[in-house]
Design a protein around this nucleic acid. Structure first.
Lengths: 194, 194
DNA sequence: ACGATAGCAGACAGACCTGTCTAGTCTCGA
DNA sequence: TCGAGACTAGACAGGTCTGTCTGCTATCGT
């Protein structure tokens, strides 16, 4: 098998290594506390490469968040493929979240975290809003497929539960909140499809 | 009326002015992005006064969060005094939250925000956990007084709703999430006191 | 009257951060 | 073989941050 894409070569490109390092460090320790030097040291990349690839730290941060957004979409959709019944699929979102919040490295929603330490109106807010809109859209579709009378209203409720479970998972360092959210979602779903 | 306490003198003390300035700036823009110079400039206070009063920026941050904790308790308890019926008192928490998330300057939970931009294990985490424990305890008492069969379980559910409403209020810049949370809480309360 | 206390103004040190620039190395295709 | 493109190593500039230190001033209790 010949090397079809850069990602299959022996060593990942500088771009990929930078992105991987930024992802780990920014998520674990925050964006402000992690300096460029830490990122390039972990990536094993020269500073000039970072600036020729991304142009600025802000753009690196944007790329980090866009990567998180893409990863979240694929992970969530992949996790939902386990289920056939539309109701199970809707509740499956909270199963996936429970798995995520149960892992040791979980530090809450990367978009909210980034937003909390940045001033309003930058690229962070953009990606953050896109991610949020996608979540709402997913819940809307799942609610509609599950036969909810008011799918938009149910989606709003589920978003509240999702956010709450995410916060709880971070602050309490366990997945109790996600399981609680799943229970509530079960009740709401039953009430919405009467 | 003579000046009975320092807080009634003509000009607030340097400590109070520093705390007020730190509160505004840290909450509005984040802790890392706001430097000491900004704080003392707004407070109209010399840098030496800051360091002789608080000792370090970390301690100023702790004082800021402790002030927020105290303010939140009094505001919430005061807001609940409007209601007599135990059920109304429980739901009243979400009314107060709706009012808060509706105000223009609302930027989410100051404890979660501070925690999001700090490394683990400092004073921020301490105050944050204390605040969180207080909230859970309040919900437990309210749930018990409202006649819930499993007040601890209901409290867990309400905490999820509260966190979710707080996040939603910040990200969407309105109080829809808080009102949605109130609706869900109504259902949960009904189900818990059957 | 006077000493203690609190506070103001601002220079300064030392660390750290982003971003630029120079110069050398490695790889690979034509 | 050779030249272009990607990358590395690291010095450097300019700014910002926390925290310290030196003087000066005003107020207040005794």
């Amino acid at each position: 098998m010949s090397a079809a894409s850069p990602s299959t070569t022996r060593k990942p490109s500088a771009r990929d290594r930078l992105l991987a390092a930024a992802d780990e460090l920014f998520y674990a320790e925050g964006i402000h506390t992690v300096g460029i030097d830490r990122v390039i040291e972990r990536a094993g990349v020269a500073k000039a490469s970072l600036y020729s690839t991304f142009g600025s730290k802000d753009e690196l941060v944007r790329a980090y968040l866009e990567g998180r957004h893409a990863l979240r979409r694929t992970r969530l959709l992949a996790g939902l493929e386990r289920y056939d019944d539309p109701r199970d699929r809707l509740l499956g979102v909270f199963e996936v979240l429970a798995e995520l919040t149960g892992t040791p490295g979980f530090r809450g929603c990367p978009f909210y975290n980034a937003s909390a330490e940045s001033t309003r109106g930058g690229p962070i807010e953009e990606v953050s809003n896109a991610n949020r809109a996608w979540t709402r859209g997913l819940f809307f579709e799942l609610a509609r497929d599950a036969g909810a009378k008011d799918p938009a209203g149910l989606a709003d409720q589920l978003v509240v539960l999702y956010d709450g479970a995410s916060v709880g998972g971070r602050m309490d360092q366990n997945s109790t909140a996600a399981l609680t959210a799943r229970e509530i979602a079960t009740m709401l779903l039953a009430a919405a499809t009467l």
